[in-house]
Design a protein around this nucleic acid. Structure first.
Lengths: 295, 295
DNA sequence: TTATATTCATAAGATATCCTGATCCTTATG
DNA sequence: CATAAGGATCAGGATATCTTATGAATATAA
């Protein structure tokens, strides 16, 4: 069996052209080094060093082997360097999945903070519906996901990040006093605009509103919150908007945001990973970072 | 210390995603493999495999390490292949030095025969004067040289290849009967044309002819036999020509070749290498091949 | 719920490998 | 001829590695 050690020793001999000095460089006795070189030559079936009472000489094949061995050792070192780099806390690759009703609003806050605090971290992002995220997380294609709790899978760990209150977005043309606190029953008869099937936000909205207005709205199925809000602005109906989206989306004064009466409805955003994942520590740190940017 | 074994075992795990099967592939027991993987992870300070009672999962870092490890093992295999290739008899690189009065005549015969018989052999050629060849041979820049014997260096081995008779090349305008056998004294008063200083052929010619004609010819010093023969053809004098050159050089009917009387003068061509060289066997085979093409 | 099977981890003892230190052999040098 | 230098060889002990047996955790089946 060809070993790394043999190559290392041979390279030392190649550099020093002297067994004794080479042995010193690799911190073994000269016989130990001689034996490894002998083994290497036997292994390769090839004479690498021409011994000659007074001095030694590397054969042409030895030169070629040394060249290749050097290349191999270099890559070996690269591998170790990569590992060392990847081993420092919150560094290396983390594959993060985020739900669509969160990604565009939280990532612009999260990414700059992460880069600043953990410059060695490389984040691979994926944005899709909760069901896919959970499946990919369990399958190992993702390392950690950011979604609405609860997921409640037995082998997944989940920690809450923040409580995202729901607001009611209505057309400004209605002239409703912004200070008014809405109740679920205020949605009676309203055309409730929703995201398409599969979005957790849609389900949360419906479960909060009960079956009220479901008949008018179930068939809307917009693909993004921005789309829904455009429809609200145009007067087609109302929608329930997570607070985290408010900053980004509401530059439009044709929309008025109304708070619900206490207890305000909300969704709980959390970070989820496999209980067996080796980087739980890192995900906890990621969770802290997320709490800081969402405070 | 990072070892190849660890990488090999890890790659098996990466492929099978199963410790038991991976262990089978690399022909060790499962605990042995587990321990090597554990050592590798400890060595790299990095979790590569996420264990999970029922199944295992390679971490993103593990994927990257596997990619690099594969690359390293591939190069390792290349190195072994190279060695195997180089180890077969008369294969690999041989650096051969040849004297100028031999190279153009013997190489066209030798090379095709060598390629046919030993397709794995790669010959690096160098053509220069004997003194340089011997020096480079002793220094290890060359592996074997083809020159006129004797060299008689204590640490060089020399084997004769063939006896190269000298012929006298004269202008055809002299109308000498080709059947006449010449003696050294027939060169009296002739303008003897010679190669420049340092060529063994020049020294051999002079030593055979004694000091006769030396006064006229010592200052000629042509750089090649072809040049000397052009001068003979043009009627400037005569020269002593090794028989091996005759085939190639004498397409010119302005030159007549005359044989010397017995004992015919000659040079003994031989193959020379370092006694300590690991490829003596190969050089013996090379010598046999040379004898075949010169018979 | 209990038994069984699967899968990786751990432990103990056997084995193979590797290293050290002493010594030998060959050859160059004064 | 004696000495020094440089690599090879050898014996014994230290390390590392392997195997077998067993354990622990969890999923699957009865």
């Amino acid at each position: 069996m060809l070993t790394f050690k043999q190559l290392r020793y041979f390279i030392a001999v190649h550099q020093h052209r002297h067994f004794g000095n080479a042995a010193e460089e690799v911190c073994v006795s000269q016989p130990a080094l001689s034996m490894q070189i002998r083994d290497l030559e036997k292994e390769l079936g090839l004479c690498l060093v021409e011994r000659n009472a007074r001095s030694i000489r590397i054969t042409p094949e030895g030169e070629e082997i040394a060249r290749r061995a050097n290349q191999i050792l270099r890559e070996m070192q690269d591998l170790k360097d990569y590992a060392k780099h990847a081993a420092s806390p919150l560094s290396g690759i983390i594959r993060l999945g985020v739900i669509p009703s969160l990604a565009p609003y939280i990532l612009p806050k999260l990414l700059p903070a992460l880069i600043k605090q953990y410059p060695d971290l490389q984040l691979n992002l994926r944005e899709t519906l909760t069901a896919s995220l959970v499946s990919e997380l369990k399958h190992g294609t993702l390392d950690v996901i950011l979604a609405a709790l609860p997921i409640e899978e037995p082998d997944l760990e989940e920690v809450p990040i923040f409580e995202d209150h729901f607001l009611l977005a209505v057309s400004s043309s209605r002239n409703i006093d912004e200070r008014k606190r809405m109740g679920a029953d205020d949605l009676h008869g309203e055309n409730l605009l929703l995201l398409e099937e599969g979005h957790c936000l849609r389900d949360q909205t419906l479960s909060f509103c009960g079956s009220i207005g479901q008949n008018q709205s179930a068939n809307v199925g917009a693909t993004s919150i921005a789309t829904v809000l455009h429809m609200v602005a145009a007067g087609y109906g109302v929608t329930v908007l997570p607070e985290i989206c408010a900053d980004t989306e509401i530059a439009d004064d044709r929309i008025t945001l109304l708070r619900f009466a206490e207890p305000q409805p909300s969704r709980r955003i959390g970070l989820i990973w496999r209980k067996t994942s080796p980087k739980s520590e890192d995900y906890m740190a990621l969770a802290r970072c997320l709490r800081n940017v969402t405070n």
